[in-house]
């Protein structure tokens, strides 16, 4: 049985600046990291492996240098890494990305049954939170988003029970396996790789699947398969906010006023 974790290598967004002239990202010298939410997805995958004896495969779609990220996943304990890399996959939006990922999951499923696919809640570069649900929809898996705890997995009954964190409340949900779960950072605390694992990972190789192996129609993947296109990236100018209660000094008083105003505007409700 497989647990498949989807990870994305993203530019360290805190170090990315937008070129004011061209409106594009300046990526020069910006280090790449594993999308922070995905690190928690990977950690959860590893915990499920330890608890239920799954095999954990980590998959990622991206340029060849994504292998560095996948090696880190192996150092942390993933059993196998699959890198989906091909020029044809480039420029993909969430629709095209979820297409490639779900096809890869299907392909992995041909050899070994897939029980759970774990994604991070969203990526820090795109921030759409659509790829996980996209995969679930395409594969017909149960879709569990905003998960902050996996309560139980029943392999015999093929059921999973998770806790979802919603605004102001939690929801315990039971769903059929296979399932796609998109996790929050609160779900776990990360582990640190041991040196023997790091050394082992340095010599390891991710399995490379290009489109020759995947054999996907070019119109469904990459830029061609994308339903959306980036026209411009810019930092929205923020108009100065409303100032409430000029000259106030008491923090308690300010908070009270602020909460009143937010409730008036239905931003907060009881």
């Amino acid at each position: 049985m497989l647990v498949i974790t989807c990870v994305k290598q993203v530019p360290d967004t805190t170090q990315v600046r937008v070129d004011p002239v061209t409106g594009t990202l300046i990526r020069d010298g910006v280090p790449f990291i594993i999308n922070p939410y995905d690190t928690h997805a990977l950690e959860e995958g590893l915990r499920l492996k330890e608890k239920y004896g799954f095999r954990t495969v980590v998959i990622s779609m991206g340029p060849p240098n994504t292998e560095v990220t996948l090696k880190k996943a192996i150092a942390l304990g993933a059993d196998e890494a699959v890198l989906l890399s091909d020029r044809a996959f480039g420029g993909a939006d969430t629709l095209a990305t979820s297409q490639v990922l779900s096809e890869a999951i299907k392909k992995l499923g041909e050899k070994e049954e897939v029980a759970i696919v774990i994604c991070g809640r969203q990526t820090i570069d795109g921030d759409t939170a659509q790829v996980g649900p996209g995969i679930a929809t395409r594969l017909g898996y149960s879709q569990l988003t905003l998960v902050d705890s996996i309560e139980s997995v029943d392999l015999k009954a093929k059921k999973i029970r998770v806790r979802r964190k919603l605004e102001g409340r939690h929801e315990i949900v039971e769903a059929k396996l296979p399932a796609m779960i998109a996790v929050l950072k609160e779900i776990n605390s990360l582990r640190y790789p041991t040196v023997p694992m790091r050394l082992m990972a340095e010599d390891s190789k991710a399995t490379l699947w290009d489109n020759k192996i995947m054999g996907l129609q070019e119109t469904t993947i990459g830029l061609k398969g994308s339903a959306t296109q980036v026209r411009k990236i810019f930092s929205p100018q923020r108009a100065s906010g409303e100032i409430i209660g000029e000259g106030l000094k008491d923090p308690k008083e300010v908070s009270r006023l602020l909460i009143d105003r937010l409730m008036e505007k239905h931003v907060l409700s009881l």
Binding site: S189, R191, Y192, P193, T194, V195, P196
Partner: peptide, 21 residues
């Protein structure tokens, strides 16, 4: 503790990550 068992006080995890990255 750190190299063979990855065992350390929680606050060091963030510290190590910051240092590495």
């Amino acid at each position: 503790l750190v190299e063979m068992n990855a065992k350390m006080p929680g606050e060091l995890l963030t510290f190590f990550e910051s240092m590495e990255q």
